[in-house]
């Protein structure tokens, strides 16, 4: 990340029960759909939201919020409302493996 500009970023994690890739929403809740994720454009705010994710990871209760593993920030590119990932690795993480079509996402092998 360059120091003068920041974001856009989202908070991502894995779901404890399924391992699924999940994103933090504005509510705050978790979603598997990147389009529902809360997009952050400010560094201080990103820290606050990451902290929110981490707090949820360490909650000890039966509520759904505690089923979150290893939250971190993912950088995005947003061009005319089309969302893409800055790192290839993050795109692959979101869309699923490229050797089989598992039908998890609309994904064509690049």
């Amino acid at each position: 990340m360059k120091s003068d500009e920041f974001g856009p970023v989202v908070v991502s994690a894995n779901d404890l029960l399924t391992g699924n890739v999940i994103f933090l929403t504005e509510k705050p809740d978790w979603t598997t759909n990147i389009h529902e994720a809360y997009v952050i454009n400010d560094k201080a705010e990103s820290c606050r939201w990451l902290l929110e994710g981490e707090v949820q990871q360490s909650l000890f209760s039966d509520n759904l919020f505690s089923h979150v593993v290893d939250p971190y920030l993912v950088e995005l590119k947003i061009d005319k409302e089309v969302i893409s990932f800055c790192a290839f690795k993050e795109a692959l993480r979101y869309y699923g493996p490229s050797n089989y079509f598992h039908g998890k996402r609309d994904w064509e092998i690049v």
Binding site: N14, T18, G19, N20, V21, V69, D70, L92, R93, G96, P97, K104
Partner: peptide, 14 residues
């Protein structure tokens, strides 16, 4: 504990 039982949390899944 899960690793001692062969279980990883990978990119998309366990």
């Amino acid at each position: 504990l899960r690793l001692l039982n062969g279980l990883y949390l990978q990119t998309h899944s366990y």
